[in-house]
């Protein structure tokens, strides 16, 4: 923690968890989709479902999906802007179960190029957020670091190849986590890095053996 965690952030009110955190969750979902949002259905769970209007959580999520920052004065008008940009956003309440954080949200998104992605995350206080699930894969990352997310076959060497590409580009791995559904099946890997991952490295990683897809997640 440093002094700017106490004096700051500058944000649009009224709540760091229900407004600023919601913007960041929208930012992350948008970054994970990796292209402009064409359509999004947003499911609100727990306290988000109960109090979203009074906190502007819905406006904040829509602002986040358009890539706006938590202190953007346009946030109260994010629906109008989405309409103008022909982005269809709708809201529903969902029950993600008792084990989910009370401020949880799930995005079902379709991008302008037709890509689809489902992202679940939670606002865990003070504007900090965590993404907990991408396309049915349980994951865990905060968006505080640049990251790549791979879907790959669970094979020996699949992970080493990715990290070796990063190391040749001078990218240091800050944290990484690997998830798989079953041995030898489809697996996911989140690699959070200290340096941003450039286009060249990103493309090479996408072409590595065993890698099915790769997404780059970079927040400003």
């Amino acid at each position: 923690m440093n002094i700017f965690d106490v004096i700051g952030p500058v944000m649009i009110g009224p709540s760091s968890s229900h407004t600023a955190g919601a913007v960041r969750l929208g930012n992350l979902a948008f970054a994970i989709l990796g292209e402009g949002v064409k359509e999004a259905v947003i499911g609100l769970h727990g306290s988000f479902a109960q109090t979203y209007r009074g906190h502007g959580t819905d406006l904040a999520l829509a602002a986040g999906l358009q890539g706006w920052a938590t202190d953007d004065s346009r946030i109260p008008k994010s629906f109008d802007s989405a309409k103008e940009a022909e982005i269809e956003i709708s809201f529903t309440t969902i029950n993600l179960g008792d084990l989910s954080h009370p401020n949880s949200v799930r995005f079902w998104m379709t991008g302008v190029n037709g890509n689809k992605c489902t992202v679940t995350g939670a606002s865990i206080g003070g504007g900090r957020v965590v993404v907990t699930n991408i396309d049915d894969f349980p994951v865990e990352f905060s968006g505080d670091f640049p990251a790549i997310l791979t879907m790959h076959r669970d094979r020996p060497g699949a992970i080493a190849l990715v990290t070796s590409i990063l190391s040749t580009q001078g990218v240091n791995v800050a944290q990484m986590k690997v998830f798989r559904k079953q041995k030898g099946g489809l697996a996911a890997m989140i690699v959070e890095t200290d340096q941003p991952i450039d286009d060249a490295a990103f493309e090479v990683i996408g072409k590595l053996p065993h890698i099915q897809s790769v997404r780059r997640i970079q927040l400003v």
């Binding site: 004096i7 500058v10 944000m11 649009i12 009110g13 760091s16 406006l59 004065s73 504007g127």
Partner: peptide, 12 residues
């Protein structure tokens, strides 16, 4: 409370 821009110091 009306979605104005503020400094969370320490919170909103």
């Amino acid at each position: 409370a009306s979605m104005g821009r503020i400094v969370a110091a320490p919170t909103a």
